[in-house]
Every structure is written in structure tokens, then in C-alpha cells.
Amino acid sequence: MSHEDLYVDHDNAQWAFGTGFTDPLHGVDQRVPDGIDAGDLAACCLALGDDALVSAQRLAEWCTRAPELEEELALANIGLDLLGQARLLYARTGRADGTGRGEDAYAYFRDPDGFRNLRLAELPGGDFAFTITRLLVLSVWRLAVFEELTSAPDPVLAAIAAKSVKELSYHCHYAAVWTVRLGDGTPESRDRLRTALSDVAPWLGEPLTDQTAAGLGAESAVVADRTLRHLADVVVRAGFDPSEVLPLGPASAPAIPGSGRDGDRTEHLAPLLTELQSIARAHPQAQW
């Protein structure tokens, strides 16, 4: 009856232990290399970490509410991937900013005005069409950023990027498969998708002009171009004209003033963080 009994499979030799529980940072030198602006590195890791944490929190809100059980599994997998990325990026932030703070210091003990995520990530969950559309946009953009960061001058960030690219490729695939199905499904699903696309569009300028990772090798123009081409491809397959539903460049995106990267927030981040941080802050001396 002990768990060991479960693992000694006397009559089921085809069962095996899993392998490959590899640390993505195994063997990577943790020191910040000379010649890198540690402040830039910290700011980049913090912003990309915040995007991931806030997105994971929104995905976690779907738990027990997904439209089908298979979708529970998928949304949770994506949420877990993003949570994993956030943890690695926060750990790197603590090293780069010289404070040595751990992941939880960033997640639980900063106020909303200290967060640097894209505002699109913090908008409330909405329906499945909105969740898929936002996931598509953020995954496609993030994939383009991390593809560039695989050759970042900081080896830790490059290793995090290499791990993330694999995960994000799947997130893009999942979101694209669903976008196409909603676009070509029923009149209702098509309407909902159209609404979601128009709800997301005003916030696209922020990632498309983001300079956060530019100093580490992810040129903003390269990222924006690849993001838009990828998005256009999916939108066409979903039966929409990209010029109608997507801004075709940073210039044509309807401008919502400010930027999450500069600490501008919508009213939706504070309640999200209140929930996320509630227990940790109620018991500051506790161990978990």
C-alpha cells in the first residue's frame, strides 16, 4: 500500500519511470556576463516574467469552467508552461538586479504599479473566443521574441528562451487551431470571434512596439513583422480579412495611451493581484 509498492511493477514490466526531468539551466553559468547592461537584462526578464505570470493567472481562472474536459487539460498545460517561464525569469531578474530576491518576492510582494506586463494580459477573462484570441496574439508575439532571444548575449536568458520556444510553438498551434474552428464554425462562434478580435486589436500596438527585449537581441521591428505575418496567416485561415480585423502595423493600431511596460495599468490588474497575493500577504512570516 505504500507508494513504493506502486512502483515495483512485478507483473507489468512495460511500465517505466519517466526520464528527462532536466533543468533547462543545467550547466549554464549564472553570472551576468561582462558587457551586458544588467539593468536592461533585469527589466527585460521582469517584464517577460510579468507577462507570463499574469497570463497564467488568467488561464488558471478557467479551471473547472472550460468548455470541454479536453480543453481543461490544454489550458492548464499552457498555464503551467507560462508559470514555469515566469519562475525562471524572476529568478534571473533577482540575479541581474543585484537584489538576490527570489521568485515569490516579485510575484507576491509588489503592488500593481510595480508590474510591467502588457496590459492585454491583464484584461478580464471574457469568453472562450476572447481567451483564444488573446492567447493567439500573446503566444505569437512571445514566440517571435523568444526566437530572437535564443541568441541573447546572456546565456541564462538564452536558455530560458530555448525552453520557451518549444512551449510557445505549441501554444500558438493550439490557439490557431481553435481560432480557425471558431471562425469557420457556427454563426455564433464567428460573431464571438469577430468581437474578440476587435476587443484585442486596440491593445496590439503595445507588444508590436515593445522595446523591452531590443537591447538583448530581439529587434522590435523584426518581432513585429513576424508577429503580424503569423497572425495574418491564422486570421485568413479563420476566414477573416486581416486588414479588417488586425492592425497591419504599429502605425495603424488605434492608440490606447500609455504602456504596461512603463507601469500604466488598467483597473483590472489590482483585483487580479489582490487575489493572487492574498494568502501570502496575510501570513508574511509563514512557510509554504
Binding site: 481562472e61 474536459l69 487539460l73
Partner: peptide
């Protein structure tokens, strides 16, 4: 409790656990 888990490690563990339950149901 996933959205309120008091550390990121506990959040990941709980998220994975609850996800497993969906898998077990399936």
C-alpha cells in the same frame, strides 16, 4: 485555491494536480 496559492511553487504543484484530476476523469 490555484489562483491564491501562497508561493509560485505551490501554485504550479496545485495547478498540475487539479489538471491531473481532469485527466483521471477522462
Amino acid at each position: 485555491w490555484i489562483t491564491r496559492a501562497p508561493s509560485l511553487r505551490r501554485k504550479a504543484i496545485l495547478f498540475a494536480k487539479v489538471q491531473d484530476e481532469a485527466g483521471h476523469g477522462l
